[in-house]
Every structure is written in structure tokens, then in C-alpha cells.
């Protein structure tokens, strides 16, 4: 019975975390892509304080952020300065195009 209880609690917790990440991702979509691609955000690894400053700057520049806390949490968790910076991706050949 106890095992079942902890199992349900754990699953609930995971779902809640997943939900929070999903919420953060959704807010990022709504707030950022009017002006720039998300690669600009996802290619950086910053402290919570630095992400906080970036959000402030972007709000000053007109970004509408519906849930600031969720966005900050999402950025810090997924793109925190404890993680390595990813190597930039190579684009495909576009030399023949206008």
C-alpha cells in the first residue's frame, strides 16, 4: 500500500514537473519568437540571475511575458550555466539560392 502511495506521488510529481516544463516552453514560444529564433536562447548557458536580466531586457523591448516565473524556471532548468554550451549546428548548403 505504501509502495503504491509513493509510486502515485512520484508519478504525480514527474507529471507536475513535466507540466511546468511544458508551461515554460509554451511561454517561451509566446514571448520570444516575434523577434528572434529560439536557437539564440537555446545556444546560451546562463545563471538564473543572468536569465533574469535577459527577461527584464526583453520585457523592456516589448516582449509580453504572461508568466515570468515559469519562463525563468524553464530557462534556468534547461539552459543553466551548469550545462555545457552546445556546438553550433552547420547549416545546409544554400549557395544556389536567392
Amino acid at each position: 500500500m505504501r509502495v503504491l502511495f509513493y509510486g502515485v506521488a512520484l508519478a504525480g510529481g514527474l507529471l507536475a514537473a513535466e507540466d511546468a516544463a511544458g508551461a515554460g516552453r509554451k511561454i517561451e514560444q509566446q514571448s520570444c519568437i516575434q523577434c528572434h529564433g529560439l536557437r539564440l536562447v537555446h545556444s546560451q548557458r546562463l545563471s538564473r540571475q543572468a536569465w533574469n536580466r535577459e527577461i527584464d531586457k526583453m520585457i523592456r523591448w516589448g516582449a509580453v511575458v504572461r508568466d515570468r516565473e515559469a519562463l525563468l524556471e524553464y530557462l534556468t532548468t534547461n539552459f543553466g550555466d551548469d550545462k555545457p554550451v552546445p556546438a553550433p549546428e552547420l547549416s545546409a548548403d544554400g549557395s544556389g539560392r536567392k
Binding site: 528572434h36 529564433g37 539564440l40 553550433p88 549546428e89 552547420l90 544554400g94 549557395s95 539560392r97 536567392k98
Partner: peptide, 26 residues
């Protein structure tokens, strides 16, 4: 090329992309 992971920058051979829009690439 457009749908997949990688993107294409018109007029450019492959570059190392830091941002798709606006384009920032080394």
C-alpha cells in the same frame, strides 16, 4: 533540409549557426 534539423541560409554555403532568425552564423 528546411523541415529537418538543419536550416538553409540563402546565398550561403554551410555556416555554423547561432541563430536562425535573424541570421547569426560564423
Amino acid at each position: 533540409a528546411q523541415v529537418g534539423n538543419s536550416l538553409v541560409i540563402p546565398g550561403k554555403r554551410p555556416l555554423l549557426v547561432h541563430n536562425d532568425f535573424p541570421e547569426d552564423a560564423e
